[in-house]
């Protein structure tokens, strides 16, 4: 990932800034340009919302074969988490044995390094989740 691509999404990656359609109240993460339910009516009525970072594991996997960036971390658990505000999000689960992850487990976000652009490039931070 290039620096500008990462930098643009710092609000989402650091602080889970999603958005909410004021018409139907549906919450989106990552934020959407317009609400796919209300469509054109939502333009101008979809507002940023900082998500709590709390939720539960909806489904999960334990990655044993990763892409190069994550090779030193295998095996690592990763999950789709249903956030309390509604949106689903994909993130690593840290600070626990891979085997401890279960569907329905309560988790909260934590701030971690996600990737490094090699040994000389930028460091990319963002959310991971841990058991509450």
């Amino acid at each position: 990932m290039s620096v500008p691509r990462f930098w643009r999404e710092i609000p989402q990656r650091y602080n889970l800034i999603g958005n909410k359609c004021e018409i139907c109240s549906k919450v989106y993460f990552p934020p959407r340009e317009s609400c796919p339910v209300c469509r054109r009516k939502s333009i101008g009525h979809i507002k940023d919302l900082k998500l709590s970072g709390k939720g539960e594991v909806f489904t999960y996997s334990i990655i044993h074969v990763s892409s190069g960036e994550f090779e030193e971390q295998v095996p690592y658990p990763i999950a789709i988490i249903k956030l309390d505000e509604g949106p689903m999000i994909t993130a690593q689960i840290v600070d626990c044995d891979p085997d401890c992850v279960k569907i329905g487990m309560r988790v909260e976000s934590t701030f971690r390094q996600i990737q490094q652009d090699g040994y000389t490039g930028a460091l990319y931070y963002g959310y991971k989740f841990k058991k509450v």
């Binding site: 030193e72 971390q73 690593q92 840290v94 600070d95 934590t110 701030f111 971690r112 390094q113 996600i114 460091l123 931070y125 991971k128």
Partner: peptide, 16 residues
């Protein structure tokens, strides 16, 4: 530190 923890992540978590 775990592989994804450094002074920045510790600083952020402490501040939070």
């Amino acid at each position: 530190p775990s592989i994804d923890q450094d002074t920045a992540t510790i600083s952020v978590e402490s501040a939070r």
